[in-house]
């Protein structure tokens, strides 16, 4: 969603270790990276990509329309504020440990400017064989009709690779991240791919914590147009312990794996017992289609 092979990408934090490393991988994948931004480092080049001091300067020179952010957590607020104010239509925040209050302010600001945010603490998004805007491995799968929406990065690589290995094509991969406040929610992404003509099947990869899977299930139950396959991680997780992601914590009966599984099942989704069941479930649906 919101990205295609036509997207012109600016990499914020391109002179840092991660920014530079992944700018190179994305470029090799075929992503059209037109600029990089690092304050006070304008005029340099990284992997042949021109570096600018600000997003606005980068936009004036290259008409970039999509940003990916690698700056450290405490600078994310400033960096993303800049890209929103430059009306970059989508900003994807890879950085983890971004404070909740910073994200709340950014989400409000993005809404005012009518632009999209994805992340933070997310692997990014891709349209296989066309564009990779993120840190996910490029060789997981080829283009096709399945759209994958996931909270977790590596778990979604695992599942997407299994999907690819089974010879199933992927229309889009979106890693929304596992933080409590994120630019794009699971419901936002599900709504988009529910209407997307190229998407034949939706795969949801969720985990314990929060109530987004339940809300997505409620949406799909009322408006779902496509078959859904899902996997929820954390069946064995104990209550009250935060499991890595800031959002992944069970408190009382809120956020349990079983609650999410039941809600999705009730909305008609097929549920994988393990991540590796997902390709089989997709094939089952494809045979029936």
């Amino acid at each position: 969603m919101y990205i295609s092979e036509k997207s012109k990408v600016v990499v914020q934090g391109i002179t840092g270790g991660q920014g530079s490393f992944h700018a190179k991988l994305m470029k090799e994948y075929g992503t059209n990276i037109v600029a990089g931004v690092t304050p006070k480092k304008g005029g340099q080049e990284v992997h042949g990509i021109s570096v600018f001091n600000t997003v606005q300067e980068a936009k004036d020179a290259t008409s970039c329309d999509t940003s990916i952010v690698f700056v450290p957590a405490r600078f994310v607020y400033g960096a993303v504020r800049e890209s929103i104010k430059a009306n970059i239509h989508l900003t994807c925040i890879i950085t983890e440990n971004v404070p909740v209050f910073d994200m709340l302010r950014l989400v409000e600001l993005a809404k005012e400017h009518d632009v999209h945010l994805v992340g933070p603490n997310c692997p990014g998004m891709m349209v296989p064989d066309k564009i990779k805007l993120g840190i996910m491995p490029g060789n997981m799968c080829h283009y096709g009709g399945v759209s994958v929406i996931a909270k977790s990065g590596t778990l979604s690589y695992e599942i997407t690779k299994a999907i690819g290995n089974a010879g199933i094509g992927v229309r889009a991969y979106v890693g929304i991240g596992g933080d409590p406040i994120r630019g794009t929610t699971m419901v936002d992404a599900a709504k988009y791919y529910n209407e997307d003509p190229q998407t034949k099947i939706i795969v949801l990869i969720g985990e314990i914590g929060g109530s987004e899977e339940e809300e997505t299930a409620a949406f799909l139950k009322a408006y779902g147009k496509k078959p859904v396959v899902a996997y929820i991680a954390g069946k064995s997780a104990p209550e009250g312990k935060r499991m890595g992601h800031a959002g992944a914590i069970i408190s009382g009966d809120v956020g349990t794996a079983i609650g999410k599984i039941n809600a999705l099942r009730e909305a008609g989704a097929l549920i994988g017992d393990t991540p590796w069941d997902i390709p089989k479930l997709i094939q089952k649906i494809q045979q029936d289609q």
Binding site: A150, K151, S152, G153, T154, L155, S156, Y157, E158, G178, I205, E207, I208, Y231, A233, G234, K235, S236, A237, K241, M243, G244, H245, A248, T274, P275
Partner: peptide, 22 residues
């Protein structure tokens, strides 16, 4: 990755290999 680690804990638990940690 938090999700992959969580899924691994689930898989191990199902196989009766009890995880000592996350």
């Amino acid at each position: 990755g938090a999700g992959l680690t969580l899924a691994l804990l689930d898989v191990l638990t199902d196989l009766n290999l009890k995880p000592a940690n996350f």
